[in-house]
Amino acid sequence: MTNEMQALAIAPLGNLDAYIRAANGCPMLSAEEEKALAERLHYQSDLDAAKKLILSHLRFVVHVARNYSGYGLPQADLIQEGNIGLMKAVRRFNPEVGVRLVSFAVHWIKAEIHEYVLRNWRIVKVATTKAQRKLFFNLRKTKQRLGWFNQDEVEMVARELGVSSKDVREMESRMSAQDMAFDLTSDDDNAEGKSLVPALYLQDKTSDFADGIEEDNWDSHAADKLTDAMMTLDERSQNIIRARWLDDDNKITLQELADQYGVSAERVRQLEKNAMKKLRVAIEA
């Protein structure tokens, strides 16, 4: 990975798709590689090891940030805040604890994103379109003269502004609404409506996030390794492996392959065995 791609991956500036491609292009670490790097950082303060740990986990930050896309905040900002949490986690990670870094880091990543959402998110979006903004500013001027509208006044304002009565009522309601508290205050612990506080339902606490994301990314990583390993085989060996192991819909027998290539079934078996050995070596490399 180039220095430019590394810089892009750490700070998602500019094209978000390019950033995500760069993050996904960072190689994942095996448990042994991760532990070795973590020990170098923990015991020797090796900054190069810290950089490798961070880059290999940027894809996890992207995955977490996507779960907060419903709050109308820029995805790049959510990812950047998550990256700050990842860096804090890497700095505090103890390789002797016996857990993978992703299981430890996910809590720091979420904490930074939660703090960003808390600072920037407002539940009531007063005017999000050009038409709504125009109605908002015109309605605000009219309300300064009339106060809270009755039905006749709603219809009069609707005629003046060229909108429906429903639009006027909806915008009036938005303008009069108060922000809902994002998090509980010290006085709210026993409040009757505490279940409505957004901070309490930002995430699904019933799922094991770390295990799920590790499994999803490992499957993707394994598929990529297999594809690269297959490219090391000659065309005939590739066809044999696909026909015998990878084609779920049309698996064929050794004899059918033997007839196809004009050799004995035993020769096909030997080719298959040799190809499998080469694949294992290539995947484990």
Rank of each mutant, 00 (worst) to 15 (best):
D208F: 09
G70S: 14
E284N: 15
L200N: 10
A65V: 10
Q144G: 06
S207F: 04
Q203D: 15
A76L: 08
M87E: 03
D208G: 06
N190A: 09
R119V: 04
R133M: 03
N150V: 05
F182P: 00
V154S: 04
Q238P: 07
L161F: 09
S220K: 13
L8V: 02
L135N: 08
L53K: 10
M156F: 07
D208A: 05
A50F: 02
T253C: 05
W148D: 09
I283G: 06
D189N: 12
S173Q: 06
A111S: 12
E4W: 01
L233N: 12
P95G: 08
E214G: 01
V99W: 03
L16D: 03
D152G: 02
G162K: 10
M276A: 13
N138V: 00
G193C: 13
Q6Y: 02
L55W: 06
Q270Y: 13
K277F: 07
V168T: 08
K141E: 14
D247V: 04
Q270N: 05
I54N: 05
D77W: 09
Q270D: 06
E33P: 02
A18Q: 15
A131V: 11
A181E: 08
N83H: 02
D167T: 06
W148G: 00
T227Y: 09
H63M: 07
R267D: 05
S164W: 10
K205F: 11
P95L: 09
N67Y: 02
L16A: 07
D183A: 14
Q238Y: 14
D228H: 11
I213F: 01
L37V: 12
D234N: 15
R66P: 01
F182Q: 00
L184A: 04
E172Y: 00
R66H: 07
S103V: 10
S69C: 05
P95F: 11
A210S: 14
R159T: 14
L135Y: 09
E170V: 05
S30N: 13
E96Q: 11
R40Y: 08
L29G: 03
T232D: 02
L47D: 15
Q75M: 15
G212D: 10
H114C: 03
L202C: 07
G162T: 06
T128G: 03
E4M: 04
R91H: 10
A285Q: 15
N3S: 09
R100M: 07
Q80Y: 11
L184H: 00
A210D: 12
M231D: 12
A50M: 11
G262D: 03
R122K: 14
N94S: 13
K51W: 05
A275S: 07
P74L: 12
D187Q: 12
N138E: 09
S195I: 15
E192D: 12
F60L: 12
A285M: 11
I84Q: 01
E155M: 05
H42P: 02
Y116E: 05
Y68H: 14
V97F: 15
A229R: 10
K110V: 15
G70N: 12
N15D: 15
I84W: 01
F149T: 04
K141S: 13
V99A: 06
L101A: 01
A89T: 14
E256G: 05
Q44N: 04
I123S: 01
L8P: 00
R269I: 00
S164C: 10
L196P: 00
E170W: 00
L246K: 08
T142D: 11
E170C: 00
